[in-house]
Simulated scan of single mutants.
Amino acid sequence: MENKLKTEILNITTIVEFVLLGFSDIPNLQWILFGVFLVIYLTILMCNSIIILIIRIDSALQTPMYFFLSNFSFLEICYVTVTIPKMLMDLLTQKGNISFFACAAQMCFVLMFGGSECLLLTVMAYDRYVAICNPLHYTLVMNQKVCIQLVTASWISAVPVVIGQTCQIFSLPFCGSNTINHFFCDIPPVLKLACGDTFVNEIAIYVVAVVFIMVPFLLIVFSYGKIISSVLKLSSAKGRAKAFSTCSSHLMVVVSFYGTATITYLRPKPNQSEGVGKLISLFYTVLIATLNPIIYTLRNKDIMVALRKLLTKLLTGLKYLNLQNLLIGSSCSGNRKKSLLVLFLNNDY
Rank of each mutant, 00 (worst) to 15 (best):
C185K: 01
I57V: 08
C78H: 06
L310G: 12
I40K: 02
S333F: 02
A237H: 09
L21G: 13
V130G: 01
K238Q: 14
A306E: 03
S73Y: 00
L61F: 02
T43D: 04
F109H: 07
I288C: 05
I187H: 00
A131T: 04
P270G: 11
Q324T: 15
M87V: 00
V130S: 00
A261T: 10
F184P: 00
T93V: 01
I12A: 06
S73Q: 00
P189F: 00
F101M: 15
D58A: 03
V255T: 09
V342G: 05
S59A: 11
K338G: 10
R308E: 13
E202L: 12
I32V: 14
F257R: 06
C118Y: 07
K309A: 14
F199K: 15
Y284E: 13
F68E: 06
K242Y: 11
M252I: 13
E8I: 15
L111R: 08
C195Y: 13
Y129Q: 01
I280D: 10
L310S: 12
N134I: 00
S73I: 00
G277P: 07
E17Q: 10
S229Q: 15
Y224K: 03
L326H: 08
I187L: 04
S230V: 10
F67D: 06
T43M: 06
G164D: 01
V305Q: 01
T290N: 05
S116H: 04
D25F: 10
T81S: 15
F37E: 02
P27V: 09
N181F: 03
T285P: 04
A209Q: 02
R267T: 11
F257A: 07
C332W: 10
Q168W: 06
I55V: 14
I280W: 13
S116E: 10
Y320D: 11
I328H: 10
A102F: 12
R56T: 04
N97G: 02
C103M: 04
T7G: 07
L150S: 02
L193H: 00
L136Y: 03
L20A: 05
P293A: 10
V342Y: 15
M107T: 11
S73R: 00
E2A: 13
S333W: 02
E202V: 11
P85D: 00
N97R: 02
L266G: 05
F74A: 09
V123Y: 01
N201Q: 13
